[in-house]
Design a binder for these strands. Structure first.
Lengths: 344, 344
DNA sequence: TCCGAAAAAGAAAGCGTTTTCATGGCGTGC
DNA sequence: GCACGCCATGAAAACGCTTTCTTTTTCGGA
């Protein structure tokens, strides 16, 4: 294999050596100018900085990582990068990461079946911390692979691994608010919960809280008031269509597991001539931007996606800086936003 | 500063040394098992692989990068990670990157003002290639910083830098189709184009093509048939509200610069009692998922976001592998999808 | 049975940093 | 005016891996 020209990394391939030569100092001094400027004379530092500018020198991150035993890179693995939900999460994470001087290595889990691939393995040698959001089934697989030495924070899952931080949302809070809001004008027997997958952590919590609220009203809950499917518009549509066909939807209300489901329900209702909110009141979950775009505007429990992303990164960085820190579980508030789709 | 325990990188800190010792071979052999397996006996390779598994060894990516003079990391910088548009792009990029064994370092440009920061500089020493999508004004700033030696591909911009690949969409194709579709039933004088920022590359092309189509109909274009603002729901709303107030919108049609604008227009129209598509026919641009969720469903020119993301990564990887490759400009097709919002 | 070539394995030289340790120059306190 | 200590700098080791370059082993053919 042909040997590359001596200096041929990206960025022109100028190395610390070149800078040192140009500034007539040792490489140690150059390094110090960059990392501990107070250890070097103003005059020398000036010369070095000039050389750096002149040569367009950028430190080689690999060499730094090797020498320092860590880089400034965080990995974030999501079930899929898809739609407003994840993009908002990512946005929050990106902002915080940038603020803290870290980079984000993003990867979605959708392409293989949840088991870390060669690619992931490479990443493990590269990242200083890992943010993980996964659907339940895969969690087990990852647990085997995960390394106790790699700072990890898990999103939206009931993980109780020692040394693994987690960020969750206070599902009870928003759900309770939403339930109260719906029950205020709609009889408990006409209230429905249409969630995502039954095994999903959030869906489970939301359903449970909703159930409690119904019971608190002194209502004997019927099982068909709860439905579980997937986090998709289509599932919402199907549920509503079925429901309309079988029993009709009059003076009813529904809390959906996320905005997409809510939208599907709204759509199917409208298509079938069921008035929203007149006949059917709908509340979504997450409060993604789309909630304000559709007509009628969708009421929704707001989940602070941006904050979640930021919190994840913050926790990770804290742990990277101090591996002794005990595991934290951060819980972020949720809150009902009432719009037309549920207003009576 | 306290010296860390000898082997204390993430992933348990097992190094190639440990594996070598365990398998009773030299580190060279371990490396070969991993990178050029045919150079080593099946028996030895087996022993080494056992050791690797036993010790949970993961190669240190920094050391590899340093030794190989490159990693497997691509940087991608977007104006902002926000909404369906970018998330879809990212999704395409992620899939392709994974397929090719690369990682994606994602960063949004929104937080500082377009000039590369310390963070970015670090990234420059880390990434092997850069995908860049920026609004025009910032482009200049970056150009100064960009390095000829760093493979770069630019999205959706009319860059003509030597050695810089680009990926663009065929705006003319879809715009033409959309224009024809609208003009079929609506008089040219009642057709409008409501775009994003005037200086935006795509908006400019789309407007131009739309204009051509009107002229081809023998119509003397009035300037108020073209409006420029920003890529937001709100701008769409404002335009429609103004228009309705000033002239009314009857038997009219509009091509929007993206789906968000289209949605804003649709909303304002509906709020003002203007029927869509009865009085106003609307076609969006991009065909993000939201187009199928709103009612009436939004007609839109489909932009292959997923493919764009994938193409960007593919181009980048090709160039990383072969820096002599001449600069390519890839143009992806667009295509009108007719839904209810424009159906007569 | 032995020779020579090919295959397999090892030794060691980098890759570009950071950081420890060593060194020389200088100012300060007596 | 002298010793001591501090400060600025340099020399060199270490980080973990890949890749030459060597050395050792194996094996086929005479």
């Amino acid at each position: 294999m042909r040997r590359l020209k001596a200096n041929s990394m990206s960025k022109g391939g100028t190395s610390i050596q070149d800078v040192a030569r140009e500034a007539k100092v040792s490489i140690a001094t150059v390094s110090r100018v960059l990392n501990q400027p107070d250890l070097v004379t103003a005059e020398t530092a000036g010369r070095v900085r000039d050389a750096i500018k002149l040569l367009g020198y950028v430190p080689n991150a690999y060499a730094q990582g090797l020498s320092r035993r860590h880089g400034k890179v965080l990995g974030i693995v999501l079930p899929d990068i898809y739609g407003e939900f994840y993009s908002e999460l990512l946005r929050g994470a990106d902002g915080e990461a940038r603020r803290l001087g870290f980079h984000l290595l993003v990867s979605s889990d959708a392409h293989d079946h949840g088991s870390p691939t060669r690619t992931e393995n490479l990443a493990f040698g590269l990242i200083d911390g890992l943010a993980l959001m996964m659907t339940e089934p895969n969690m087990e697989l990852w647990r085997e692979t995960l390394d106790a030495a790699l700072p990890t924070v898990v999103l939206d899952a009931d993980i109780n691994e020692p040394g693994v931080d987690s960020v969750v949302v206070d599902n009870a809070m928003g759900t309770h608010e939403a339930a109260e809001h719906l029950l205020e004008k709609t009889p408990a027997s006409n209230c429905f919960f249409v969630g995502g997958p039954r095994e999903n952590f959030d869906t489970a919590q939301r359903a449970e809280e909703f159930r409690k609220a119904l019971i608190a009203k002194g209502h004997a809950v019927k099982e068909d008031q709860f439905a579980f499917g997937e986090y998709s518009v289509d599932w919402g549509r199907r549920w509503a269509a079925d429901r309309i066909k079988s029993g009709g939807l009059k003076n009813a209300a529904v809390l959906a597991g996320n905005d997409e489901i809510a939208l599907g329900i709204m759509q199917a209702a409208q298509d079938a001539g069921v008035g929203v909110p007149k006949d059917l009141r709908i509340v979504g979950f997450d409060d993604t931007r789309i909630a304000t775009i559709v007509r009628p505007a969708l009421s929704a429990v707001r989940v602070p996606l941006l904050d979640i992303g930021a919190a994840v990164v913050r926790l990770l960085v804290e742990r990277v800086g101090n591996s002794e820190k005990p595991a934290t579980r951060e819980k972020l508030p949720t809150k009902l936003i009432v719009r037309e789709s549920s207003r009576v």
